[in-house]
Amino acid sequence: MRTEFSAYEIWRAPSALAAATLLGLVAALVTDEAWDVLWSLLLAVPLAVGAWHWWRASYAR
């Protein structure tokens, strides 16, 4: 079992999720509303990741 994670390992997922969020927010601002569903899916990724971990901790173990 791991005892300590590196900074890279700690920040890999949070920074990827934050980057996805920022990309989705800005992209939705500069593109037509027809693209909204795509950007919404991108913005949903952080929520989905959070919900998945919550669900896994609650029911899948």
Binding site: R2, E4, F5, E9, W11, P14, G50, H53
Partner: peptide, 16 residues
């Protein structure tokens, strides 16, 4: 403060 705390916890850890 998140970084130091997560040094020994995997991302997404929820200790139910």
């Amino acid at each position: 403060v998140y970084g130091p705390f997560m040094r020994r916890n995997e991302f997404g850890t929820v200790r139910m």
